[in-house]
């Protein structure tokens, strides 16, 4: 089985995601961070668990709610903050902002503001991986909303047909923006859609990081040995609204949100590790402080980063010269 199985490492990843989103939220409401941040708070386990099942050379496509995936893949927090702040050192030099990050060094083919658009791209990358004889696999992250897009169905059909090394990682957070899942599709388990394309679909508790890791590891292992794709549906919940300025209260009941907060993936895993003695209270505090400092330091540096030069708007359209 590939990837890290260190449960403390998983906690660290989840804490980093949580702290990052808290910082983004803080900067957003302080008026320092513009745009439309789409926080993944509450969904840390699916990002951490799936990415822990991957090897460094594997690839992912991500979504508008992608910061958890990026952090779990080891993104440079300074450059990520810089991009969200629209600064020079951001991943697209301040031109993309949130939702539009791409970084091949962590195997990220791109986050995208177009729901579902990354799924066929992941399939193409998987096809290329197999054609090149590499054992790289590709994960396409997306949500319940994306599972209604034509691109989702076209991509799953191709992946099933050609038995491609891809994992379709569906973070079902029960809402496509404001529309509850039961109001946007007639099925409860999105995983059943895999059957229509000739491969395995599996449902897992998306707030239980070890369960996610286990299921993802199985899916990744199948993909790596040529047994084809898996649709892995992780049931989870986003605590906040759809994006920064959406309180998420017009379409959800406070009791529902509260109930899901009770099932906090970070808290659950923390309690488990404390109970097992895998981590002590003081080690936990130390870890939290280290991550907090790391995130704050990256954010503060990014706040000091200069704006991109005005010429940057006209750059990065085309590359001079031919292909290598």
């Amino acid at each position: 089985m590939a990837g890290t199985l260190d449960p403390v490492k998983l906690l660290e990843t989840m804490l980093r995601i949580r702290r990052f989103e808290e910082k983004v939220d803080q900067l957003f409401f302080a008026g320092k961070l513009p745009g439309m941040p789409h926080a993944c708070t509450g969904q840390e386990a699916s990002a951490a668990g799936v990415c822990a099942a991957l090897e460094p050379g594997d690839l992912i496509t991500s979504t508008h709610r992608g910061e958890g995936h990026l952090i779990a893949r080891g993104v440079d927090l300074y450059r990520l903050f810089a991009e969200l702040l629209g600064r020079r050192d951001g991943y697209s030099r301040g031109k993309g902002g949130t939702m539009h990050i791409a970084d091949l060094s962590i195997g990220l083919l791109g986050t995208t503001g177009i729901v579902g658009a990354g799924i066929p791209i992941a399939v193409g990358a998987a096809l290329a991986a197999r054609m090149k004889g590499s054992d790289r696999i590709v994960v396409a992250f997306f949500g319940d909303g994306a599972s209604n897009q034509g691109a989702f169905h076209e991509a799953l059909n191709m992946a099933g047909l050609w038995k491609l090394p891809v994992v379709f990682a569906c973070e079902n957070n029960l809402y496509g923006m404001s529309v509850a899942q039961w109001r946007h599709q007639a099925i409860k388990d999105i995983a059943v859609r895999a059957q229509a394309y000739g491969f395995l679909g599996e449902v897992v508790d998306g707030n239980a990081v070890l369960d996610v890791l286990e299921a993802a590891s199985r899916a990744v292992a199948r993909a790596r040995v040529g047994e084809g794709p898996t649709l892995l549906e992780m049931k989870t919940y986003r605590w906040c609204g759809h994006y920064g300025a959406d309180p998420g209260t017009s379409y959800r009941k406070a009791e529902e949100v509260a109930a899901w907060k009770e099932r906090c993936p970070v808290k659950r895993h923390t309690e488990l590790l404390l109970k097992q003695g895998a981590i002590t209270e003081s080690e936990l505090e130390e870890l939290q402080e280290r991550i907090s400092n790391e995130v704050d330091e990256a954010a503060n540096r990014a706040l000091e980063c200069p704006e991109p030069p005005l010429e940057a708007a006209q750059e990065d359209l085309y590359q001079a010269g031919g292909l290598p």
């Binding site: 091949l104 066929p120 193409g124 990358a125 991509a155 191709m158």
Partner: peptide
Amino acid sequence: SPLAESGIIGAAIGMALNGLIP
């Protein structure tokens, strides 16, 4: 390919990002 233009172009993009020239 299957009859799926969005899938064809999406897959071609993925191939291009992963070292092929579709």
